[in-house]
Nucleic acid binder design. Sequence first.
DNA 1: AATTGCTATTTGTCAGACTTAATGGCGGAC
DNA 2: GTCCGCCATTAAGTCTGACAAATAGCAATT
Lengths: 249, 249
Amino acid sequence: MRKTKDTMGDGDPGREPHRGRIHGSIARTLGVAIVSGQYAPGDILNNEIDSSEQLQVSRSAYREAIRILAAKGLVESRPKTGTRVTPRARWSLLDPEVLAWLFVSEPSEEFLKGLYELRMTVEPAPAALAAERRDALQLERMRQALIQMQHETLATEAGQAADRDFHDTVLEATCNAPLFTLSSSIGAAVRWTTIFKQRKRELPRDPMPEHWMVFDAIAAARPDQAREAMERLVSLALQDTRAAIDPKR
Amino acid sequence: MRKTKDTMGDGDPGREPHRGRIHGSIARTLGVAIVSGQYAPGDILNNEIDSSEQLQVSRSAYREAIRILAAKGLVESRPKTGTRVTPRARWSLLDPEVLAWLFVSEPSEEFLKGLYELRMTVEPAPAALAAERRDALQLERMRQALIQMQHETLATEAGQAADRDFHDTVLEATCNAPLFTLSSSIGAAVRWTTIFKQRKRELPRDPMPEHWMVFDAIAAARPDQAREAMERLVSLALQDTRAAIDPKR
DNA sequence: AATTGCTATTTGTCAGACTTAATGGCGGAC
DNA sequence: GTCCGCCATTAAGTCTGACAAATAGCAATT
């Protein structure tokens, strides 16, 4: 007779009930543990039998979780050797899930800075491309997003979503699939850095003027102007974040 | 009595023997089929039972393959509905494996162009950062890579590897983890576009001068100069590729 | 017509046995 | 004594088959 898992949920009061699928939860749990440094690169995880028993899941569920982590470059499995954490250089840091895992435990200030440098590197050129290639529909979406953002402000979830929509649509308007792929990463960067900004100061500064300048330049089909405006936008956001983190000023 | 799979390898003359792990092979097979458009976004794959039988693997191996594809954003599974191909916008196009799958069947010229725009967007700023932050060891690695590249030329595998090493080291010298993550994607872009360049013309043009100019600027710690030199490098490479694809000029 | 409840189908999870591959040590050969 | 190759060990990899959970679509009911 099968155990039927009827005891599932008993005891274990501290364990959060699996939100979605089990393999997803396990991947998240392990992923967070890895990116937060609980396992160091080169460390070897317990073998599948022990690990799955510890986590109270079947070996297959555990293995599927490991496949997810391996697909994102966090671990590497080989027979006999075991499953080991890969060096940071191979992690897919721009993968949306990995990014989310990173932000579960507060990321280092250095990483935040890295994310801003990424935005600074990646966003201006697409703004210029978008100024050349955007169609009417995309332009309208950008306008709507900014209007929404203005109404709701960055203090609300809806306002932040509108902000992300704006940046997303700029990327989309480049008509460039590889660049557009970065939107989820940029979006995550925008999202999390906004949270940091909001944390210490209520409404640091009205971010709308820079946004409208980017929009106007794209609407006017002026690539160089759009690039410069986007540079200014990211640079101002960086200043705000710095001020929020380091209240010396 | 178990079948013991003793018959494995019999018949099946057309089927390539699994190179590495089975779940990896299956993921690759399906991944290639998806990115090459054999399945359209929104299509629903056959259910796990049928699919695994068709592919002559167990359901678990097939499921692990699906987990890999899902982790890279290519598919999405839900009970009752099945596993469906996600819209292209959610694919992790910059993932090294996905990139490799894309290049199994010749990618569209448009995608190639997209990859170049990505390089054009992403590489100049890191060159500037590298000029500020590189240490002596990284500088030496860049020099060695260029020397190797000069000796071997881009016609050899070793020469191309040296080229990639150079670009990798520039990214690494930014001391920025998110940016460095892009190196595998940039590396793939460099690799595949080089193959295209080599295809039609033997030695189109000596690419070393631009490379040395980037190196010199980084060595001299001149960020702006490094940025400009890198812009020129990518731009020249783009011209070469265009000429190779479109022999009108 | 709208809502509710059922059912069939598909993914999800589990358990346990067996296979393959890589490693490290052991023994034999030189 | 040193080196090479074989073998035991160990961990991931694979297979099988059964059961659980979720849900889309349909039917019956109000």
